[in-house]
Nucleic acid binder design. Structure first.
Lengths: 125, 125
DNA sequence: CAGCTGCTTCGATGAACGTCAACATAGACA
DNA sequence: TGTCTATGTTGACGTTCATCGAAGCAGCTG
């Protein structure tokens, strides 16, 4: 909240070593802190427009897309920008300006962390 | 409001055949309809209290828990009931009254569907 | 430099949400 | 039957959120 306000869903993003904030949902009850962190992530994807934007970026070639490519989701462009900012604040997207256009890119480790969150605990059947 | 208003996140729940509403997020851009459906699910988990409740149920023995076991999340009991109703409406939980107590149970197929949603597309590296 | 395009920020508005207190309902037990 | 406990429901209140139009900033192009 103080600096870049990027949420610490994962701790390191250098390689493929994913350090999720929380164990799988089925492993043990979440603590208040874990729930707070993970809920921010789910909330970021809890809007249809944001989900479409995120999916558009994630499915784009090279894992990145310029705003002009994905802004056809039925809302005004300021709204698109607003949602992209929300996704960025949630740590799900990263943006980079390249000349005229701004490109958004998915953080793959975050996607992996979310996937693990929803994985069944391996022990129980 | 009308009936049970359970969302059709998955179509069949008979066996382990999961029929998710949507492809993986990375496969192709979501349509408006897909995004609407999936966003409801994410939104349901986008609240810390609901996430704790869901995790408490999911991690409980036999995959089910009575309200009295999980209502210690720092909010009043009507609020707990309210959130459990939301989770039920989202299709993530199912409830059953057994004598005095009401037991909530996780829909395993829904969890699997969500996990698949966040899976990387298998083809791309 | 001037004009144009792409994107973000600002301010406002209406809707949705989380929370609680109070009431209602269902079952257990005396 | 009456009462007590466990849950669900209703209504209200304050907050957050999504959305838009207008304005501002950044970079290209003439």
């Amino acid at each position: 909240m103080s600096n870049t306000s990027v949420l610490p869903l994962i701790e390191a993003e250098g390689s493929e070593a994913v350090a999720p904030c929380c164990p799988p949902l089925t492993e043990r009850p979440f603590t208040a802190e874990e729930a707070e962190t993970a809920a921010r992530m789910f909330k970021a994807l809890g809007d249809p427009v944001r989900l479409r934007l995120f999916s558009a970026v994630a499915s784009h070639a090279a894992g990145e897309a310029c705003v002009c490519d994905i802004s056809d989701v039925g809302v005004s462009q300021p709204t698109v920008s607003h949602h992209l900012k929300k996704l960025k604040e949630a740590g799900l997207l990263a943006s980079e300006r390249r000349g005229t256009w701004v490109y958004y890119r998915v953080e793959p480790s975050v996607l992996a962390a979310m996937g693990k969150l929803l994985t069944m605990a391996p022990a129980t059947a």
